[in-house]
């Protein structure tokens, strides 16, 4: 058995002249929650569709739980659970009917099915509405039901395409809790999301895609350290000579230095750690009254890697 739940090796997907995914290589470990981030049209959903066998790569290899999806996708599907972006629920039917149909398609044992359905519906807070038509559900309830359905056949690997798209804050938090619970159960999850806060809260590792290419891959904290800017605020007394600003700017890793309202702001690029040098330099010339360091957030990382231009 491979250590990796998902392996993409040199995967490309082309639609005519348009390349949706270009030479993508990714590995997702067993038991990991892995996030695919990227602006609209970056290739996230195309990638997840290739993992689910809904789309064939134009080149490269997709392997899931050690099986090649190009030749062995049918037998693998029993081990995969999916929450598609569109939820793919039969909205005319009740939650219960949707789950029963799923159980039949995935050949879930009839013995104990009722209890399992009840357990999952209780887990996602829909037990009271199990006989209501799905069309009467809110967006958040539909997503929760889609998650319950994906878990019904007890898959080893779950993939969730924009699991909290368009749902309210309460539902989003509830869905996060369920997803984090999966990790406790040792399941692997692949998530695409536009929400950086979500990726930060859920994912062990993140891959950022842009224009179908992998632009960064690491843990959220490493990404922030590598690609985010740290800002150090310094309050000095007395106010130093202008020469200090020039000296600070010359330090390796310092991107910018500004001063206003008695505060000097030192912006430090990526992984550089210059706080000690900054403090040493300023205390030679003045007295350090206050210091505050702002850590970068994932949004800054995302924007620095993918740019600020609007995407369709």
């Amino acid at each position: 058995m491979t250590d990796y739940a998902i392996e993409l090796t040199g995967v490309s997907k082309r639609f005519g002249n348009f390349t949706a995914v270009s030479d993508l290589t990714l590995r997702v470990a067993q038991g990991e929650i892995f996030g695919l981030l990227g602006p609209n049209g970056s290739g996230k959903t195309t990638t997840i569709n290739m993992v689910g066998g809904l789309s064939q790569p134009s080149s490269g290899q997709v392997s899931v739980l050690g099986h090649d999806m190009a030749s062995d996708s049918r037998s693998m599907r029993r081990s995969l659970g999916s929450v598609p972006q569109e939820t793919a629920l039969y909205e005319e039917l009740s939650a219960e009917a949707n789950l029963r149909f799923h159980a039949d398609l995935f050949d879930v044992a009839r013995h104990g099915l009722e209890q399992r359905m009840t357990h999952l519906l209780e887990l996602v807070g829909l037990q009271d509405r199990r006989r209501s038509r799905v069309s009467t559900y809110s967006g958040g309830m539909k997503r929760r039901l889609a998650l319950a359905r994906a878990l019904l056949h007890d898959p080893e690997l779950l993939y969730l395409d924009e699991p909290t798209l368009g749902v309210d804050v309460q539902s989003r938090r509830a869905l996060w809790d369920y997803i984090l619970d999966l990790k406790q159960q040792g399941k692997t999850a692949l998530i695409t999301t536009n929400y950086l806060e979500e990726a930060n809260a859920l994912c062990d590792r993140i891959a950022i895609l842009d224009h179908g290419k992998l632009v960064a891959e690491d843990t959220p904290s490493n990404l922030k350290r590598k690609y985010g800017d740290t800002v150090i605020d310094l309050v000095l007394e007395p106010w130093p000579e202008p020469e200090l600003i020039l000296q600070l700017r010359k330090l390796t890793g310092v991107a910018d230095v500004t001063h206003a309202d008695g505060v000097i702001k030192v912006t430090v690029e990526g992984e550089h750690s210059v706080a000690g040098e900054v403090v040493t330099l300023v205390t030679r010339q003045s007295r350090l009254v206050g210091i505050n360091q702002h850590q970068p957030n994932l949004e800054e990382v995302f924007l620095s890697l993918t740019g600020r231009g609007l995407r369709d």
Binding site: R77, T87, Y90
Partner: peptide, 13 residues
């Protein structure tokens, strides 16, 4: 049209 084809296609049926 309702995208439920995904539920069918993602199944081992």
């Amino acid at each position: 049209e309702t995208h439920t084809i995904k539920e069918l296609m993602l199944s081992p049926a």
